[in-house]
Write a protein that binds this DNA or RNA. Sequence first.
DNA 1: GTGGTCTAGACCACA
DNA 2: GTGGTCTAGACCACA
Lengths: 117, 117, 117, 117
Amino acid sequence: MKFEKDRPIYTQLIEDIEQSIISGKFKSGEKLPSIRGYAEKKVVNPNTVQKAYSELERSGYIFSKRGVGYFVNEDIVEINKFKCKYLELQIDEFINKMSNISFSKEEIIEKIKEKLW
Amino acid sequence: MKFEKDRPIYTQLIEDIEQSIISGKFKSGEKLPSIRGYAEKKVVNPNTVQKAYSELERSGYIFSKRGVGYFVNEDIVEINKFKCKYLELQIDEFINKMSNISFSKEEIIEKIKEKLW
Amino acid sequence: MKFEKDRPIYTQLIEDIEQSIISGKFKSGEKLPSIRGYAEKKVVNPNTVQKAYSELERSGYIFSKRGVGYFVNEDIVEINKFKCKYLELQIDEFINKMSNISFSKEEIIEKIKEKLW
Amino acid sequence: MKFEKDRPIYTQLIEDIEQSIISGKFKSGEKLPSIRGYAEKKVVNPNTVQKAYSELERSGYIFSKRGVGYFVNEDIVEINKFKCKYLELQIDEFINKMSNISFSKEEIIEKIKEKLW
DNA sequence: GTGGTCTAGACCACA
DNA sequence: GTGGTCTAGACCACA
């Protein structure tokens, strides 16, 4: 995986994992890769993965079992809330940017449709 | 103006000005606020504005006249290219994120429409 | 190192490092001195070195690893292109100046030979 | 005339006029264009031309007659000395740069010949 | 007044 | 330790 170099790597890891959880790629209750393993796979420092995992734990996406590892939150309802919140946020940001450059509702829809079909 | 604390201020200034140029708020050929004036208005250090302006100059959005000031690129065609590129980028990123969390084309359109009307 | 006083210091640092890379004094992939270290050695402010390094990164001569340091571009082919381009530029400029003061091809060669032997 | 934007304009004017004098384009004793006229022709501020002329006067290339204008130094011998000094300087700088990137005498001559014929 | 460079020094992100 | 950002403030070049 390539990282953008103008943002902290750990931030990018967080977003990546959030998306994986939200999309169901990492399922509720599932064990996450070990810090070392993940660090090796992504070719980053284990400290960086550690930091990402900690943040995700603080946000409630995942939780840790001492000596065992990190696991995706087992509460499906909560996961779903994360999904809704993420969705809301992305859409708001997108619409916001489009409005800033003076695009009307219709144009926004138009442009997306062009792209998708 | 409030800045997000997880990204460099100068980056946020750049994006802000880019949007102003793209949306036509700052018109082609128009003089930008002076470094010192803009710094005062945004309550940041002049060096930070300087950095933002320099980057924008390198990208071709604006150009400087020594001892006079900074001006928006006079070539309207080029400005338009910037607009298209920006649009493309935002839409791609948005669609990309939506796909990552397993939303179908129809759902994406649906969600945006809900939001807009 | 002494700096000419009619040109920015950072420009002179850039040229100095470019030449070192082109001449092979700094080898492909090699780590550059740290910003702080180099600043101390050259008796300039770290910010000035930072600026020089950033420009060199933008030009492709070097790249940075956050928290690790700056390194000379690992692509030898590209380094070689830089060498050729630099060479071309210097020769063109020189010949140009000579022509401007109405020296013929033969005189130019003559003058250089006088100097070299 | 286009100016490089990383150096003061007046410096570039000076070099331009020096070359014109050395090459004989502006002849010994000849009247230079008026400050205003030259400024207009080069599309620069009259102050800039004024500064260039002053510097050239200090160096001995030109002299001023109050209320009449600026004239190229009437002493041909001295003009010739300028020419030699300029030549020397350019060649030294050029050879210096070539040596810095590890080119041998033979290679330098070789490269120039390639370019000239 | 306006841009451009530079210093001194602080603090954060990352390894 | 190393890079990256930012502030406060000075001084010069240019118009």
